[in-house]
Design a protein around this nucleic acid. Structure first.
Length: 484
DNA sequence: CGTGTTTGACCCGCGC
DNA sequence: GCGCGGGTCAAACACG
């Protein structure tokens, strides 16, 4: 908790914290040597050029050097092995199989021995990789969890700033911002960091509960707390996803129960209302409606926060939608157009295949629409102009959509510079995947980026052998060049 | 019989 | 105050 506050007050450190590997180390107290059983394997997937003739080894950490030297030694041994197999001592790869026709029968025993050794080595290596895989999985879970909590703190901090700005503006008699009033949540948010007394359990969860209870809730619904008349209405944030799909529903990993259907005005296609049934009282709801212009396009609108753990498939969707919602939040404080835009760019530049993002402020609730229906290459070109038209939006809700949001800190510099590095898992729906095979690649890139983000503390890509870039199939596409 | 869907009725907010 | 439209409820129904 304390760390989060410190981090929030030191913008320069924000990025460091959210960089996967550093974040991982800091949160899990995993020093590189402890990650692996035998020798060091950097959690980030580093591209090591085993065949480079470069004579200047990187001057990184000692562990990394030792790893490289080990690789060099192995190559050397393999080279020598052609002439003198006995010189090869590395247990990992034993190439001392004498398969030459001239070898006598007396050598078969030695060959068997070598084969056994090789087998044992491979088995050990396989076990080691399994252990690593398991550990990385655990780390990934932890990162997701920590990001979730951190994002909430950032959101809370932003809410506080927002409130200050609005207060100042009111005092000056020039309420230039969106006139929509601050809400009950604002007060809760503002008081949250200091007001821990009397709270049981995780205060973060408490705030989420409060947020959820106001989200999309009917005053009649027994599940939701009814707002007192004296309280101002709660402004909701929604994320709408457009995807081509013939199916009546898109698969997002959650279980839904239909509770209503309506013919909305202006669209002959009925709008279906679904409620999450993965947990009792989960306030998350979604609307599904076909696009009037193109009936193959399914528009799914999400709102609310899950009050239960999500399966991985649902987390993927949650990350994407919550990232979109984070865009709303990042621009919610009405600081300035430029700043808001830079924030939104910061979020969406990380989403390689969330192409067309549009905000609707005319709707009763701030809604962001992610259009997955167009060609990704085209989208990359389109998005820039689409996003540059974004205006700051006063979304007073915390868009903790769908469980496990991930958010970039304020004005986070991109680690890959021109090449954007995705930190969001955008493989969202089977329908979208079907129409856009690049989603699979994007997912791989996103996972790779989480597991193997490049190290560094300044946010620049100063690591020539970083593990993220070589696996990122971004089509050379930074969605928004020049984003900070 | 339990679970999910359908559908008409109802509630509520908003604009006029 | 009234009408309209969005959202939700809940009884009836379907299905495995």
């Amino acid at each position: 908790m304390e760390n989060h506050h410190q981090i929030l007050q030191q913008p320069n450190r924000e990025f460091t914290l959210l960089r996967s590997t550093d974040f991982l180390r800091q949160n899990l107290n995993l020093d590189p040597p402890t990650v692996n059983t035998g020798k060091h394997v950097d959690p980030s997937i580093k591209e090591v050029d085993f065949f480079s003739s470069s004579s200047s080894p990187p001057k990184n950490s000692g562990t990394y050097n030792s790893s490289q030297e080990e690789s060099r030694d192995r190559r050397t041994n393999m080279a020598k092995d052609d002439r003198s197999p006995t010189l090869f001592n590395d247990q990992l790869v034993n190439t001392a199989l004498n398969l030459s026709p001239g070898a006598g029968v007396s050598r078969s025993a030695a060959n068997d021995e070598n084969l056994k050794t090789l087998l044992n080595t491979l088995q050990r290596e396989s076990l080691r990789l399994q252990e690593e895989n398991c550990k990385l999985r655990t780390m990934l879970d932890q990162i997701t969890k920590n990001n979730y909590q951190l994002q909430l703190f950032i959101a809370l901090q932003k809410q506080k700033q927002c409130q200050k700005v609005e207060t100042n503006s009111m005092i000056c008699g020039q309420h230039l911002l969106d006139p929509r009033p601050c809400t009950k949540l604002d007060a809760q948010v503002a008081s949250f960091p200091d007001d821990k007394s009397g709270q049981q359990g995780d205060p973060v969860e408490d705030v989420l509960e409060q947020t959820s209870s106001h989200s999309w809730g009917s005053s009649k619904s027994p599940t939701f707390e009814k707002s007192k008349p004296s309280e101002l209405p709660f402004k909701k944030t929604r994320v709408s996803v457009r995807a081509k799909s013939e199916a009546p529903l898109i698969s997002d990993g959650c279980q839904w129960r239909k509770y209503g259907q309506k013919i909305a005005k202006g669209n002959p296609c009925p709008r279906a209302y679904y409620r999450c049934t993965m947990a009792v009282g989960c306030p998350v709801r979604k609307q599904v409606q076909r696009c009037m212009e193109d009936k193959t396009v399914l528009i799914t609108t999400y709102e609310g926060n899950h009050n239960h753990p999500l399966p991985p498939s649902a987390t993927v969707m949650a990350n994407s939608t919550s990232a979109a919602a984070a865009m709303l939040l990042s621009s919610s404080c009405s600081i300035s157009n430029t700043e808001a835009l830079s924030n939104t760019v910061g979020v969406f530049s990380s989403m390689p295949y969330i192409p067309m993002a549009t905000l609707s402020t005319s709707a009763p609730f701030p809604t962001i629409t992610l259009d997955m229906t167009t060609n990704p290459m085209q989208l990359h070109r389109e998005t820039s102009s689409a996003l540059t038209s974004l205006l700051p939006l006063h979304a007073t809700s915390i868009p903790q959509l769908l469980g496990h949001p991930v958010i970039f800190p304020h004005k986070m510099p991109h680690p890959l510079g021109q090449q954007q590095q995705p930190l969001f898992l955008n493989e969202t729906m089977s329908a979208a995947i079907a129409s856009n095979p690049n989603f699979t690649i994007a997912l791989a890139a996103a996972i790779s980026s989480i597991i193997g983000a490049p190290r560094g503390t300044d946010g620049n890509n100063n690591n020539s052998s970083n593990g993220g870039s070589h696996v990122l199939p971004l089509n050379g596409a930074s969605m928004l060049p020049g984003s900070t």
